[in-house]
Structure formats: C-alpha cells, structure tokens
Write a protein that binds this DNA or RNA. Sequence first.
DNA 1: TTCAATTTAAACCAATTGGTCTAATTCTTT
DNA 2: AAAGAATTAGACCAATTGGTTTAAATTGAA
Lengths: 197, 197
Amino acid sequence: MGYKYQKEDIIALGSELIRKNGYHNVGINEILKICAIPKGSFYNFFSSKEDFIAQSIELYGSKNLDLIRSFLEAKEPSPTQRLRNLYQYMLNINDQEGCNAGCLINNLSIELAGMNAPIAKIIDAQFQEMVVEIARCVQEGQDLGEITQTFSALYIAEYIHAGIGGAFSRMKAQNNRTYLDKWFAMTFEFIAAKAVV
Amino acid sequence: MGYKYQKEDIIALGSELIRKNGYHNVGINEILKICAIPKGSFYNFFSSKEDFIAQSIELYGSKNLDLIRSFLEAKEPSPTQRLRNLYQYMLNINDQEGCNAGCLINNLSIELAGMNAPIAKIIDAQFQEMVVEIARCVQEGQDLGEITQTFSALYIAEYIHAGIGGAFSRMKAQNNRTYLDKWFAMTFEFIAAKAVV
DNA sequence: TTCAATTTAAACCAATTGGTCTAATTCTTT
DNA sequence: AAAGAATTAGACCAATTGGTTTAAATTGAA
C-alpha cells in the first residue's frame, strides 16, 4: 500500500507547472497547493527545489524517451514517415495545449543551464539519450536512401531535435503553430536525400 | 547636461544581467546595485519590472538590428558569405563569453512569452524586424543562385534565425560551442542551392 | 505486538521580492 | 531669480521566497 503521497505524482504535477510557467516563477508553495501536500512531505522526498527539478528532468526525459521509442522502433511505415509522425504528434500536442509551454527540458536549458552546471549536465544527458534514439531511425532512413548522407545520422538527429527547440521559442512568442509547421516542412525537405546529379 | 542617470545605461546593465541569469532570477535590487542607483530613480524611468524588460527588449532588439545591418547591407562579399560572417560573429561572441547566456530575446521568449501576452508581442515584433533584414540578404542570394529557391527568402530567414535559438539552448546545456558549429555548417549546407539534375 | 524508521503535518524562520511613499535635490522654463 | 516639474534618495511595506523544525501519525520488520 505504501505511504499517502507518491513521489512521481508530485513530480508529474509540479513539473507540469514549471514547464508552463518557468522554474523561478513557480514557488514550492504553489507546488504544494496543486499536489495538496504539506511542506514536510515535499522535503521528505526532495532535499531542495533544485533536487526536485533535477528529478523532474529525469522522469520527464524518460517518459519522453518512451514516447520517442513508441513511434520510431516500429518496422513500418518508413523511417522518414515514422519521424514525421513523431514530430507531427509533438506539434499537435503543443497546439492542443495552446502553444504556450513547449518542452520542459528545453525551457530549463534556457532558464537554468547557463548558470547551473549540475542541472546543465542532467539536461545534456537527457538530450543525448533522445538523440541516440532518433539517430537510429535516421540511420535506417539513410540506409534506405530516404535521408541525405551528407551528414551523419547523429548530426542529423541533433539538428532535428535542437531545431524543434528553436521552433518552440517562436511558437511561444507568436502563440500559434505557424512557425512549428514551417519548421516541420523545411526540416524534412532539407534532410531528404537529393537526386544524384 | 541633463540628470544624473541615463535610462539607456540602466537598461544596458540590467538587461545584460537578465540575459545571463534570467528574468525571474534577477531582482530589482540587484539591478540597482550594479547600476549604483537608488530605487526611486529606477521607478522614475520604469513603471514596473515588466516595463523595464519591455523597454530592454526593444533597445536590445534595435542594437541587434544595427549589427545585422552592418553585416548584411554591404555589397560584398557575396550574400551567403555575408550571412556566414554575421552568424560566425554571433557564435564567436557567445564562445568568448563562455557559452552560457545566448540571446536576451530568445531567452525571454522561452521564459516569459508563454504566460505574458504583451511581452510575447514585443518579442515577436523584434524577431520579425530582424527576419525581414535577413530575408533581404537571402533574397539576394537566391537571385544569384547561391541559395535554394525551394522556400521563400522570408521562410529561410525565419528558419535560420529560429534555428540559432535552438542552437543556443544546446550550447547552454553543453557549455561549449560544439553544437553551435554543427548548426552553422548544416544550416548553410541545407540552404545552399543544389545542382539541378 | 512492540518499536524504530519513515512519512505526514504545519507552524515558523530569515531573507528577499516587487513596489510605495515622502522628502530633498536638481533641472528647466519663465 | 523664482516657480514648477522632473529626478534622486532611501526608508519602508506587505507578500512571498526556499527552507527548518518539532511533533504526531503511519508504516514495515522483528
């Protein structure tokens, strides 16, 4: 049965708040409120606010990895189409929630990574795990001749995944999915294998 | 002679602090300290912290626009090379300061735009002004056959400028310019005009 | 069933937050 | 030179910040 509150529930609710409103803009008290837990329980699970966000990044990252795998590990459709489906899914999610939040990890990279080395390290590790997974699919696409071989699968995967971060930044300023869709169309055109001369 | 403190000096010092450490992580008192001004003077120039950041975005944006023009409005070298020089310059600046800050406007877009519509509008306006300037140069490159015509000059300009935002996010998490350079090489390869089959 | 360990609970804390207020000073205009 | 406006100055404020503390309740193991 266990105890009354579950750590993962606190992370789920709290990190969602921070994803939408920012780390420094969300106080512990606000997290306690939506979780309906007393302060003592929070500090029982997390040694500090920074520890909370560190664990949040890891849980959010592992869930994200699961999502990526669920799209990319299949045998069909084609690698490129699987990648398209994954990113189209992400864009739709962002659209549905109002184009005002984006990705927790990308947001924290901008807000925290520059001045907090431990957090930067955790963010970087999560990013790399995702990129490796994406690169696997890109590699498949290259082997099939769908995707350009001008750059390595890893480079292309990094390029795609960093690119959506920039797209999220535009999305939040414009509060619509316009640039998201432009980014999608252009990126997949750019990485497509070109006809050999 | 005027009065003792200049509004632009306060913006210059304060916005630099916020660019490096974030909006919610920098308090008014900290800004007063590095500017060596009393609180009364700050609130004489700015009606609130939000008003301060709004004016900061506009001044930072107009200075950035000047920088962009200084690189792109020349007649030589070629349009593509002028664009390369501009972005190489930006990457170098970020490298020199330690790969931990990035662009004020991009940072604020992530930290504030999603939950602050007035600020989002100001950010978007600044972004568009810059993109128009970049698009002019891209257009020139397209006319000369240096840059792909698969997408409009405006789209390509947006793609480049949003792309560097994503690259900054990676730069901050890795605390080095590795991804910055990858982004540079790949972006200019992708937008290059391809040989016709 | 006892008992130590863990978890829950919330009052409490010093420090900081953005912002106000009043007075003194400085500037510009008449 | 005098008057009115703008600026400088910093003490002050309520609210909030992340975090500590102490005590009660709950848990799993012996």
